[in-house]
Design a protein around this nucleic acid. Structure first.
Lengths: 228, 228
DNA sequence: GCAGGGATCAGGGCTAGCCCGGGGGTTCGA
DNA sequence: TCGAACCCCCGGGCTAGCCCTGATCCCTGC
């Protein structure tokens, strides 16, 4: 099977190249960033692209973004994403919208080369391979979104202000309420987000994280609702 | 001047189209997502692309990502980004790395069409136009990174745990410290991040935001340092 | 040897934030 | 008409978190 490898780490992509050759695959190119990945797929028309999500220039999502481009232009090319830990929106969106010939594994969970070889075979055969932790995170995020959607408009106003790092008093001033009312809304927010009192949790921070994470990646402000 | 417009809102892109025509420009295409933007630039070879950062499918950064693609493939095409509020890493990275023929305006700050027309003229002429708030945010983010880099390793451990929503007690347990020591570290963190007591601020949340924002967009874990 | 930085810990005080119980008003659908 | 949902507000109690002061120890560089 013809495979293109994209990973900014020279050692890793060259190592993977040799590893795949040992198990009978044909690594036709090994590149270090998203643009080069797209160029290599165009040049070599591989069966599958093995892609690290984080690549230059920002080392955040270039791999996943390039993977989206590869899927758009060459739908028959299998895509197998790799990362150190679970990454945000783009990769999960690609999994949701184009699950065929798609895989997402965590590097630390690939304990021997057979795991990788099996995943490659499955993806190239048209199937989907997702690390269990990736699935769990995906479901968890869906659940967080649903919970935030279940907040009332006022509660979302309060939570948005909390997420800006405003104190209760500042929130009250901004929304023309008393401190007491803000406390009441915050209590409802924590309950609806299922953030019950736990000695190990800082629940306000967790609520703020939920709000910020609903727009990952890069959410600094309100997410626009998709048109109906 | 030939202009391509990209905004998912039909009303806005059609309105912009007419507005630009009134002031003497030639809007050659008006599209609703990043892919269509790239296709339109390819088809029409405009002088400038006017791009809303948030477009489908995730309504987060597709505009900025597509803008990066446009800049890569057609460096002579001016790029003018628009958004409701300041967006994260991609747009600012594009401004930093390719400032010529580039602009970034906040929609709410365009108080009349002459502001837009002036920006278009400047960008098409090879210059750079940045909303002052955008500049301030960019500088603020640089400053935040520097401050976080100035924390000791231990302080960064504590801040990372805070950002996970852990309570002081849980942080102490995890790092084998007493509550008192965690409090001391948090005090140092707040001081070094210049988060002085203010009645309107929830300083712990602001410190957590600083930590999370250092890896924007999509930072769920450690940022990888770019190779030297 | 000494100063500075980092790490750890303690006693004690204060308060913003959380929460319990309670209350009132408006709107909408069954 | 009534109940549910939403919004707003109060009195009162409790505590996690913050901060002041102070202390000790270790390491490094001058």
């Amino acid at each position: 099977m013809r495979i293109v490898i994209a990973d900014d780490s020279v050692l890793l992509r060259e190592g993977l190249s040799r590893l795949l050759a040992e198990v009978g695959h044909n690594p036709v190119a090994a590149v270090g960033d998203g643009e080069a990945l797209v160029d290599a797929v165009e040049a070599h028309q591989p069966d599958l692209a093995l892609i690290d999500i984080r690549m230059p220039p920002t080392f955040t999502h270039e791999g996943a973004v390039a993977a989206t481009e590869v899927r758009r232009r060459w739908p028959a090319v299998g895509i197998l994403l790799l990362s150190q830990s679970i990454e945000g929106r783009y990769a999960l969106e690609l999994a949701r919208s184009h699950p065929q010939r798609f895989g997402y594994l965590l590097k630390d969970h690939i304990l021997d080369v057979s795991v990788l070889a099996d995943a490659i075979a499955t993806v190239a055969g048209g199937g989907t391979v997702l690390d269990p932790d990736v699935v769990a995170q995906f479901l968890g995020r869906r659940s967080t979104l649903e919970r935030i959607d279940a907040l009332t408009a006022r509660e979302q106003d309060v939570l948005a202000a909390m997420a800006e790092g405003r104190s209760n008093r500042a929130i009250a001033t901004r929304l023309s309420l008393t401190d007491k009312t803000v406390e009441t809304h915050i209590g409802s927010i924590l309950t609806k987000l299922d953030l019950l009192p736990q000695p190990d949790d800082h629940r306000r921070v967790l609520a703020v994280r939920a709000w910020l994470d609903r727009t990952a990646p890069g959410g600094n402000d309100d997410r626009r609702r998709p048109p109906p």
